[in-house]
Design a protein around this nucleic acid. Structure first.
Lengths: 140, 140
DNA sequence: CGTACATCCTCTAGCGGGTAGAGGAGCAAT
DNA sequence: ATTGCTCCTCTACCCGCTAGAGGATGTACG
C-alpha cells in the first residue's frame, strides 16, 4: 500500500485540501508519511478518520469535542459516557438554536408580510428594527 | 444636551463597550463628539442607532446588510424594496437553517438514544460518526 | 528529451464579528 | 493626595477555515 495523494483523499472524503492540512496542523489528523518528492501519502485509516471528522463537523461538534471523540475512538476500552455527554450537550445546543431560530423566523415573517413596498418612511422592516421595546426574554 | 458616556450607552443598549467602539471603527456608528478629557459623548440618536444594530444582529443580519438598512433609514424617501429583499433573504436563510438543524437534531437523538453507556467499542455515538455511508442529500 | 500543465509544497495573511489585555490617562469621592 | 472606577488607544487573539504567493514535483504528450 503506497498511499493516496491529498487530492484523492480530499475528493473521496469531501474535505478540501487546505482543510486537511489544517487538521494535520492542529493535530486532529496524524501527519502521514511522505513520498520522495515530499508529498503526503494517506492510507485507509486516514480516510476513515477524515470522514469521521467531517461527519462530526457537519453535526456541529467543535474541534475540541472532535478531538475528545477521536481519542475515545482510539481507545475503545474506555466507557463511552464522555461521548454520550458530548452528544447530549450538542443536542441541547441544537434544540436551543432551533427554538431561537423559530422565534426569529416569526419576527422576520411579521416584518416581511407587513411591508407594503412603499417608502422607507413607513416600511415595516425598518420600523421593526427601530423599535426599542423588544426584550427577547433575555431578562426575567 | 451633554451626552452620555460609553458605559451608560453600553448598559442601556446592552451592547458591550468594545463592541460599540468596534462599530464606530467599521463605520456603523458615527464617531461621536468627545469631552475635554477625550471621552466619547453619545446622544439619543446614537442610542437609537445602537438598538437598531443590536436588534438586527439578533435577527442574524450581517454587518453589510445592516449598513444598507441604516442607509435606508437615513433616507426615508427611498423605496423600501431593498429592505424587503434583505429581510426576505434572511428569512429564507433562517428557514434553511431550521430545516438543517432539525435533521441534525434527529440524528443526534438517534445517536444518544441508542447509546447504552457501555464501552466505546460498541458506542452508538462513535459508531454513527464513523459510518461512511451518509450523504446528507448534498448531491441530487 | 523537452515542455506544458496539473498537483503539490510551505508560508503568511485574511475572513466575520467581535473579545481580551496591556499600559496609560481622567475623574469623583474621601 | 490617594483610592478606585471608567475610559482611552493599540495590538493580538478567538474559531474554522480560505486564499494567495512563490516554488517544487509529477505526468502526459509530441
Amino acid at each position: 500500500m503506497q498511499g493516496s495523494s491529498i487530492g484523492k483523499v480530499a475528493e473521496r472524503s469531501r474535505v478540501k485540501i487546505p482543510t486537511i492540512r489544517y487538521y494535520e496542523q492542529i493535530g486532529l489528523l496524524p501527519a502521514p508519511p511522505r513520498s520522495d518528492g515530499n508529498r503526503r501519502l494517506y492510507g485507509e485509516q486516514d480516510m476513515r478518520r477524515l470522514s469521521f471528522i467531517r461527519h462530526a463537523r457537519e453535526l456541529g461538534f467543535e474541534v475540541e469535542a472532535i478531538r475528545t471523540l477521536l481519542n475515545l475512538q482510539d481507545n475503545p476500552n474506555q466507557s463511552c459516557a464522555t461521548a454520550d455527554e458530548i452528544a447530549q450537550a450538542r443536542l441541547v445546543e441544537v434544540e436551543e438554536r432551533i427554538r431561537s431560530l423559530l422565534a426569529l423566523k416569526a419576527e422576520l415573517q411579521r416584518m416581511v408580510e407587513h411591508c407594503q413596498q412603499g417608502r422607507v418612511a413607513e416600511c415595516r422592516v425598518i420600523e421593526t428594527l427601530s423599535d426599542q421595546t423588544h426584550d427577547h426574554g433575555r431578562l426575567a
